[in-house]
């Protein structure tokens, strides 16, 4: 049992897709198209789901045939929507947050998954995902297991402080001290929420307001 590593969690799910068609299009193709068209980075629904470090969606059409005459040829009878996520915290809290912040997208993405029509609310969704969950054999965390807010705050501080250190090299002790005290207040160093990087942020934070003050 190794779904967790400290406070980080590795969720692996395989959600079977109904073998069927809608308007002459196979349901797995509809599903694939939907996940391919999801907005990316800060506009991704995962950016709204608390504590998501990394997440991905893909369609498993079939298993591969390793070539040669000494191996069996396996084939899957269903196609699977594979959803995996790396996040901070426990699974129930995470899935609750998922439902609360991205219910519309969840309904859209999972619409054609087997038995998803029984999912009516948050509790159903949590139970559903758990039924699709596979136990991870080895979960490797090469990063941190902090809350995402802490990670994003730290990254903001790293950006801001590096720029501070560059800007203030060579200042007198008094100048430096005044500037440093002001810097610590401005970056609100103990406040994990703001200012900080935002989830999925694609460009560096604008620190000009900070430097001008």
């Amino acid at each position: 049992m190794a779904n967790t590593f400290g406070n980080s969690y590795g969720l692996t799910t395989l959600c079977p897709i109904i073998n069927g068609r809608h308007n002459n299009t196979a349901l797995d193709k509809i599903t694939r198209r939907r996940i391919q068209l999801l907005k990316e980075n800060s506009a991704s629904p995962f950016a709204r789901i608390p504590n998501t470090y990394f997440a991905r969606l893909f369609i498993l059409n079939d298993v591969f045939f390793e070539q040669g005459n000494d191996v069996a040829r396996d084939h899957l009878k269903s196609k699977y929507l594979v959803f995996t996520s790396n996040f901070h915290g426990d699974l129930d809290t995470y899935l609750s947050g998922m439902w609360q912040h991205a219910e519309a997208e969840i309904r859209h993405i999972w619409q054609h998954a087997v038995a998803f029509n029984n999912v009516q609310n948050e509790k159903d969704f949590i139970a559903y995902i758990k039924k699709c969950q596979l136990t991870t054999s080895l979960f490797f965390n090469g990063s941190t297991d902090d809350t995402l807010q802490d990670q994003l705050k730290s990254l903001y501080i790293k950006q801001a402080f590096t720029e501070f250190a560059l800007t203030h090299q060579g200042k007198t002790a008094a100048q430096l001290r005044a500037a440093f005290n002001q810097f610590i207040r401005q970056v609100d160093i103990h406040n994990p929420v703001s200012p900080a990087w935002s989830p999925g942020q694609e460009t560096l934070s604008d620190l000009n307001p900070l430097q001008q003050r």
Binding site: R32, I35, Q36, L38, E40, N41, S44, F46, A47, T52, Y53, F54, A55, R56, L57, F58, I59, G142, S143, T144, D146, L148, D150, Q151, L152, K153, S154, L155, I157, K158, F161, I189, W197, P199, G200, Q201, E202, T203, L204
Partner: peptide
């Protein structure tokens, strides 16, 4: 991947870890 989300596209694992230490 059909959809791949990264909470910090601008940061490598090294960046995340050193940011934590620094902060």
């Amino acid at each position: 991947c059909d959809h791949y989300y990264n909470a910090y596209p601008l940061a490598s694992a090294n960046d995340v870890k050193s940011a934590k230490r620094l902060t």
